[in-house]
Amino acid sequence: MYPAPFRYHRPDSLDAAIKLLERLGDMAKPIAGGQTLVPMLKLRMGDVNDLIDIGRLPGLAEIQINDNEARIGALATHATIAASPLAERIPSVRDCAGGIADLQVRSRGTIGGSISTGDPSTDWAPFLHTLRAVVEIQGPAGQREVAIDDFVSDAYTTVLKTGELVTAIRFPLPPPRSGGAYIGYKRAAPAYPTCAVGIQLTLDEAGVCSAARCVLSAVASTPVTSDAADAALVGTGVTEEDLKAAGELIIAAADPPEDVRGSADYKRSVLRGLFLQAGTKARQRATGETIEGSHSYV
């Protein structure tokens, strides 16, 4: 399978890449790892005249932990993030990074590319909702920041304007007694998840939930959140019953597409199971337990 012909450019700085993207307009596309874009080009989805290779731009792949926040450069690969000290400190980061596709894809695919595609079935954008992340963007008009909740506006659509590139993702480090989990169900490793659930919790000293953020992935055109579900968990001990009740609130907001991965009802029942698993794991991690595990597939 061959993409339609395109011209290839490899600018040596972020500024040069932005200028080129601005000049060439919407028929030009940036390529980083290419793990979403190359298969789409091979299927000839969308017209592209020019590919701007940003994959080697310097200084955009760093993963930093500062006093109160984490910052992941847009060009950091899933594999690098999964093996980073940040993932060691916040295990849900490893759940997400290490659960994406297979190791070959994780070697190439980048966090910036993943969120920029706006694909409803990808993992980073929904997962980052649980950590209330902010997306750093650079473009012809300079720098700006957008909350992850506002970044993906529709399926395959983000707020990025012509010439704009994601440069980093930032999120506050969770306070003490916090724990999170992100679990998807996939039909096979290289497949996109049928659906996935992310939950981030903070407990007080008595083990009562003081803050919660839940998200569902791949069951609507954008990640699904529910203030009602988050509020329902606050004040509880995050028991099985509490999770089932909160799960129903957020699952009611999902609109799972019926496709080769299953019917809407099937996906809702998978979501119920994943929500319970993710919530239990998040609570255990918040109490200091070390628990591994990520997406499951058969």
Partner: peptide, 25 residues
Amino acid sequence: TSYCGACTIHMNGAPVKSCTLFAVQ
């Protein structure tokens, strides 16, 4: 289609699917 892994090679020591990369990259 970036699924089966038969085309796996190493690039700078990391396994990658050579059907999902352009030679120019």
